[in-house]
Design a protein around this nucleic acid. Structure first.
Length: 891
RNA sequence: GCGGGGGUGGCUGAGCCUGGCCAAAAGCGGCGGACUUAAGAUCCGCUCCUGUAGAGGUUCGAGGGUUCGAAUCCCUUCCCCCGCACCA
């Protein structure tokens, strides 16, 4: 018995080399519709962390499982290789982003190989190579040609530390911090390239409903992010400034609008600030859009309510945001909490115009006016104090008012903004544009001149491309005059928004991807990655897929059929992070315990979407399990003498083990299908435990034992592939375990569960009796299965909906013949009518109990006799019921 | 505030969708036993309370409800985590 465990290092490197030599994970281009299993490709930051290991173990286990099921599988890996950290690292180390990145990739690829992840490395992609980013540029051209890319002045999020622009999605939290470096983000006005994702807002939103293979949380986050709202856009006239657009979802409350409010950076506010000291003071010094307290200043102007003609005061208020709606709003303090708070503070009238609809409202009587002095009434209801609209329900009133007010029209607002892709950094895809020094403007670089390659890295502050004078100077493709290259590069989310298509034909030189093959192979069947990409990456990928479907003939409008957002690996309930210093190094675990242990521990610790705590104890326990399994198989092969001769009769114990082997197959397969590896692995581990007892307590029947070991190895193969491969060979099976067929079962799950329940209950009962009766040393234990008529009676009771069950039972002569026993059992059935459950048949119960008798013998060290009712003493038989055999213990 | 996910025995963590066989898997920890010179590893059993033949009691955040029956379904409430948010 090994104490220090098996030689995982030797086993793992041996099989990694063997797989490599045989190219077992290669997916030929000509396979049809392979199962596409994909983990989100990593940013090559240097080393794999536990999050990566979990992510890629999930995809790898699933890919291996599908392969054993006979599918062709596409399971590629690549590198999200552009990005700011490389630039920072290059500066620190006085190297360049390319070399640094490539080093990281080499390290991480090696680590992935040592984890035994079965990728088709022939399809590896690296986004920072011109072979890849050429197609980002090509896509940009296509976007531009289709009017989906445009350059415009924009107020942008600027991270002073990263010295670049960030998308809204990359700004986090109330404090507006950069997602990468947590620096507070500033606003800047810059000319930027945008991809018009808002063109697809409706489809992106509505198609979420059909993404049934996605977690609800992600779907909801995307819905929120798109933030579609139906409402009314209308104009309020402000003296001296003309009509001002406002957006409202509650035009039904317009008669209660008692003031009008402008964002501090609204053009009118800015105009006023230059002439009015109070407004100037407020706009430039007091306004605090981040604060909880609504602040504002009265302008002295009035706005005309387009519904009533009423003149209402105009405020500049910091709770009005210029990027929401139109940056101007009609305020209805009686029916909006925020307006209410502001009105109270500034002492503006609060005028209720909506009343809650009474329960049995007759449509005519005016409902009671709500008390809005303390709190706004914000729900829909019935209009009051609204002239001819009084008495209408909110919804109707909205329609009518939108129709009646001249400047009003229905309007849909989105929270989603266009995707600003310009980044003022070096390490990204150059945007293929040149700015003509004459009159051609911004001109696309012609397709034949792609890729626009990055120049050598210049270590400088600011954007290194700006400093690359020679590179910048070019010729205008339109007029042949001098021109300057665009120095912005693309957001790296552009790279990842279509990389899953590139894997289909990674070497394609003429096209970004092979269209026919993509049509056949896409969408990704199972995508796995972190929840942090719920909005950005997944939304952009959906958007780009849709544009490619519309303009390039891709026949899929969604890239990912099933999405799994894997949970975090924690330590003591806290997320592992470098800054907290509570990380566990995958490399150390692999060295100490092996990749199989790390993988198996993670997969059996919890469902893949749940967070779980890393536990060194758990790892050791997993390692011991694998060691025991290895010992078991090796002993079996080394020492045939321990098993019964090949022609030996099968014993009941053998039946038990054969049954349990089948049971494990039946359950594990279904659970692998659902990606609930933890449950599947429990079966595999239980089976190994059973096999160990089998060997310990009986003379294993060679066939049964061999099949048990063989099945256990295969059930574990997706998660612990190296050891599985080693043991597969030890068992002298042909070919690779990787390519082995998934075992098949002859039982269904329901039968398995009933059988196990019966055995477990019976064992439990024997224990209880021995314990309660104080039996020191049982001489014999008789287990008696109920007579057939009771099974018949039970089945009649289950089918029957008659009021008098006993009467119905007594119509059966073979039951009636039982006399008092029948009446008594009938009463039991009647009493428990609702709780009756189907059991195994009498024969099956007899077989199952005979097969399990050895467990009881082993536990109580006494012979166990399983009998049918006909062979047993009547007094004992009387206590037996279906699902519950009678037990008689002889002291 | 809105939305999403949770709260299970000493700990971790299944079960909840599809109510009953659930005092509730598995692992860890703890206890007892076997083996061993010993330790480790391994194996067997125990690990909510009471009970001299398979019983009863109290448990799955809290409180109600539905049901013959609830960890599981419904409502209310408290707490934790995550995302979004002065969103007009």
């Amino acid at each position: 018995m090994s104490q220090e465990g098996y030689d995982h290092t030797a086993v793992e490197s041996r099989w990694q080399a063997a797989w490599d030599d045989a190219a077992v994970y290669h997916t030929p281009d000509d396979v049809e519709d392979p199962t596409y299993v994909l983990g989100m490709y990593p940013y090559p930051s240097g080393k794999l962390h536990m999050g990566h290991v979990r992510n890629y173990t999930i995809t790898d286990a699933y890919a291996r499982y599908r392969r054993m099921r006979g599918d062709d599988v596409l399971h590629p890996m690549g590198w999200d290789a552009f990005g700011l950290p490389a630039e920072n690292a290059a500066k620190e180390r006085d190297t360049n982003p390319r070399d640094w990145t490539m080093d990281c990739i080499d390290t991480m690829r090696g680590q992935m190989k040592s984890m035994g992840f079965g990728y088709d490395w022939d399809r590896e992609i690296t986004t920072c190579t011109p072979e890849y980013y050429e197609w980002n540029q090509w896509l940009f051209r296509r976007f531009h040609e289709e009017g989906l890319a445009e350059r415009r002045d924009a107020e942008v999020n600027w991270c002073p530390s990263c010295e670049t622009v960030l998308a809204d999605e990359q700004v986090e939290g109330d404090a507006e911090l950069c997602w990468r470096c947590d620096t507070p983000v500033e606003d800047r006005e810059l000319e930027q390239w945008f991809l018009r994702i808002t063109e697809y807002a409706d489809e992106l939103l509505e198609a979420i409903d059909d993404l049934e293979g996605w977690p609800n949380s992600v779907r909801q986050m995307q819905r929120n992010w798109i933030g579609r709202q139906y409402g009314t856009q209308l104009e309020f006239h402000i003296d001296g400034h003309g009509p001002v657009e406002a957006f409202t979802t509650r035009v039904d409350t317009i008669h209660g609008a008692t003031f009008f409010a402008l964002a501090p950076d609204h053009p009118i506010s800015e105009a006023l600030a230059s002439e009015d000291d109070a407004v100037h003071e407020f706009v430039h010094h007091e306004a605090d859009p981040e604060g909880d307290e609504p602040n504002g200043v009265e302008t002295g102007l009035t706005a005309t309510n387009p519904a009533t003609g009423e003149e209402i005061p105009v405020f500049v208020a910091d709770f009005v945001l210029s990027d929401v709606g139109t940056g101007a709003l009609m305020a209805v303090p009686a029916h909006d909490e925020r307006d209410h708070a502001f009105a109270e503070k500034m002492d503006v009238e609060i005028r209720p115009v909506i009343a809650p609809e009474p329960d049995d409202w007759d449509d005519d009587t005016a409902p009671d006016t709500p008390d809005v002095s303390e709190e706004a009434f914000t729900e829909d209801g019935v209009l009051i104090n609204s002239g001819e609209y009084s008495g209408l329900r909110s919804e109707t009133a909205r329609e009518r008012l939108t129709e009646a007010i001249e400047s009003a029209e229905e309007s849909t607002q989105y929270q989603l903004r266009d995707w600003g892709i310009s980044r003022q950094r070096y390490w990204g895809t150059p945007i293929p544009i040149v700015h003509c020094h004459d009159d051609c403007g911004s001109v696309l670089v012609p397709e034949e001149d792609l890729p626009v390659e990055l120049p050598e890295f210049i270590n400088t502050t600011g954007n290194p491309l700006d400093a690359a004078e020679e590179w910048k100077a070019t010729i205008c493709p339109e007029c042949g005059g001098s021109a300057t290259r665009e120095t912005d590069t693309m957001d790296t989310f552009v790279d990842s928004s279509w990389y899953f298509l590139r894997y289909v034909s990674p070497g394609a030189e003429e096209v970004p991807f092979d269209l026919d093959r993509a049509n056949d192979w896409m969408p990704v069947d199972q995508y796995v990655g972190g929840i942090e990409h719920a909005v950005m990456h997944l939304l952009y990928s959906r958007f780009v897929t849709k544009t490619i479907a519309d303009h390039e003939g891709l026949e899929h409008r969604e890239p990912f059929t099933n999405l799994l957002a894997q949970g975090m690996v924690q330590l003591d309930g806290e997320k592992m992070s470098k800054s907290k210093g509570n990380t566990v190094s995958p490399q150390r675990i692999v060295e100490e315990y092996g990749a199989d242990t790390a993988r198996l521990f993670m997969m059996q610790a919890a469902q893949p979407e749940r967070d779980f705590d890393w536990s060194e104890e758990g790892v050791r326990s997993t390692y011991r399990f694998l060691t025991r399994l290895a010992d078991l198989v090796e002993e079996y092969v080394a020492d045939d003498a321990a098993t019964a001769p090949a022609d030996a009769d099968r014993d009941t114990v053998d039946d038990y083990v054969a049954n349990e082997t089948d049971a494990a197959v039946a359950i594990a397969g279904a659970e692998y299908d659902d990606l609930t590896f933890n449950v599947a692995l429990r079966e595999a581990q239980d089976l190994v435990r059973t096999l160990r007892s089998y060997r310990e307590h009986a003379e294993p029947h060679p066939e049964t034992y061999a099949r048990g070991l063989d099945v256990a190895v295969r059930l574990l193969a997706p998660v612990a592939p190296h050891l599985a491969e080693e043991l597969w060979e030890t068992l002298e099976r042909d070919g690779f375990a990787v390519d082995a067929e998934w075992p098949t079962a002859t039982v269904d799950r329901v039968t398995v569960e009933r059988r196990r329940r019966l055995v477990e209950n019976t064992r439990e009962d024997v224990r209880d009796i021995v314990d309660v009766a104080g039996i020191e040393d049982p001489q014999r234990i008789d287990v008696v299965v109920a007579p057939d008529w009771k099974y018949d009676a039970l089945s009649i009771a289950l089918d029957s909906d008659a009021g008098n069950l006993i009467g119905e039972l007594m119509q059966e002569s073979h039951i009636r013949e039982q006399g008092d026993d029948a009446a008594s059992y009938g009463h039991d059935l009647q009493a428990n009518r609702e709780a009756l459950r189907e059991t195994l048949s009498g024969d099956d119960e007899y077989d199952a109990l005979r097969a399990a008798a050895w467990l009881i013998e082993r536990e109580f060290d006494a012979p166990v006799v399983v009998e049918r009712a006909a062979d047993a003493d009547d007094a004992v038989v009387r206590k037996a019921e279906p699902g519950r055999p009678a037990i008689d213990i002889v002291e």
